[in-house]
Amino acid sequence: MWYVSTRGMAPRVDFEGALFSGYAPVGGLYVPEALPQLGTETLRQWSALSYPGLVKALCSLFIGPELIAKDDLNDLIDRAFSRFRCKEVVRLSRLRNGLNVLELWHGVTYAFKDLSLCCTAQFLQYFLEKRKKHIIVVVGTSGDTGSAAIESVQGAKNVDIIVLLPKGHCTKIQELQMTTVLRENVHVFGAGCVAQKMGLPIHLVVAVNRNDVIHRTVQRGDFSLSETVTPTLASAMDIQVPYNMERIFWLLSGSDSQMTRALMEQFERTQCVSVPKELHGLLSEAVTSESVTDEVITQTVRRCWEENQYLLCPHTAVAVSYHYQQRDRQQPRYGGQRGG
């Protein structure tokens, strides 16, 4: 498996090269040169796998055995998930009226980023030990990424980590996670499209808070920065630049590196891009979007508790609000007619 830059003009690299490069040398993000296609039989077999088993199957498609032997890969993934609080790693809670919540918070820091970063750290350490090298990882975070990144590499002899966090804009528990349980290698300073393309039969819904650059891009093709970042109850979503949009542009444009490069370079110059009509059509066909206010987040948390005695975090409530919105359109919550 080879990886190429979304903007072209960079040599292709293997998984190890992409892992250690981050951004491509001349800009752009690394993506698989070709996506494996999943047939119906593969999806049927995978549906019976545990979450760790599914991760092993997926990773084997993107990491060649010449880089990490199959047994080593499986061991790394088992080690990555060994500290999760439930054996399943993730848990699906089936609630009333068709609401299913996939719980991604059973990792050490209670953040969904534990799922990816614990594996990333294992892969980094594997290659660093093999090459007898040492690296410094620099992380910028609005909260959840920082604590998950710190936890994933704590005590790793080949990795130092520096985390930049916006003082006063993280939750108290996240700030404490990042500043009170440190090791010698930790330094903190204040401060689904792929799956769809591989053949998974899903329609994606992107639900965001009032920082709505993704929503505006999907709805109107308006990929531009707002004047400011609006603080919300779902603070991990308080961002201006959703960098993964570059990968989505590349995927939906048929791997058109020239178009992707032109769009992103214009965005970097002007902070404002009007997505081409054809690409916007493909985006809006593949993805539905919604933007919700803090009031809606609060109402959603309350409603889920009243109906299920199940407490949502504000970020999950952003997504669940879309479910309630669609359900209420099909079946109004309060029946009957009112007199005029």
Results as ranks from 00 to 15, higher is better:
105 W>P: 04
106 H>Q: 04
106 H>P: 01
108 V>K: 02
111 A>Q: 05
113 K>Y: 09
114 D>C: 05
114 D>P: 02
114 D>H: 06
119 C>S: 08
119 C>V: 15
119 C>R: 01
120 T>S: 10
121 A>N: 04
122 Q>P: 04
122 Q>W: 10
123 F>V: 01
123 F>K: 04
124 L>V: 08
126 Y>T: 06
127 F>E: 12
128 L>E: 13
128 L>W: 09
131 R>L: 09
132 K>W: 14
132 K>T: 12
133 K>E: 15
134 H>R: 11
135 I>T: 13
136 I>Y: 15
136 I>G: 13
136 I>L: 14
137 V>S: 07
138 V>L: 06
138 V>P: 00
139 V>Y: 05
139 V>P: 06
140 G>Q: 04
141 T>L: 02
143 G>V: 00
143 G>N: 08
145 T>D: 08
145 T>S: 03
147 S>E: 03
147 S>K: 14
147 S>Y: 10
149 A>G: 03
149 A>K: 00
149 A>E: 01
150 I>L: 12
150 I>P: 01
151 E>F: 06
152 S>R: 00
152 S>I: 01
152 S>L: 00
154 Q>I: 06
155 G>E: 07
155 G>D: 14
155 G>V: 08
156 A>G: 06
157 K>G: 13
158 N>F: 13
158 N>E: 14
158 N>M: 09
159 V>W: 05
159 V>L: 09
160 D>M: 08
162 I>K: 10
162 I>A: 06
163 V>L: 04
163 V>G: 07
163 V>P: 01
165 L>W: 01
165 L>N: 06
166 P>A: 06
167 K>G: 13
167 K>R: 13
168 G>I: 00
169 H>W: 03
170 C>A: 11
170 C>H: 06
171 T>F: 03
172 K>F: 11
173 I>E: 05
173 I>F: 10
175 E>M: 00
175 E>L: 02
175 E>D: 13
178 M>A: 07
178 M>D: 02
179 T>H: 05
179 T>M: 00
182 L>P: 02
184 E>S: 11
185 N>Y: 11
185 N>L: 02
185 N>R: 08
186 V>L: 05
186 V>G: 04
187 H>F: 10
187 H>G: 12
187 H>Y: 12
190 G>Y: 04
190 G>R: 03
191 A>M: 00
191 A>G: 14
191 A>P: 01
191 A>K: 03
192 G>I: 07
192 G>S: 13
193 C>Q: 11
193 C>F: 10
194 V>D: 06
196 Q>A: 12
200 L>E: 14
201 P>H: 12
201 P>M: 06
201 P>R: 10
201 P>D: 12
202 I>F: 08
202 I>Y: 09
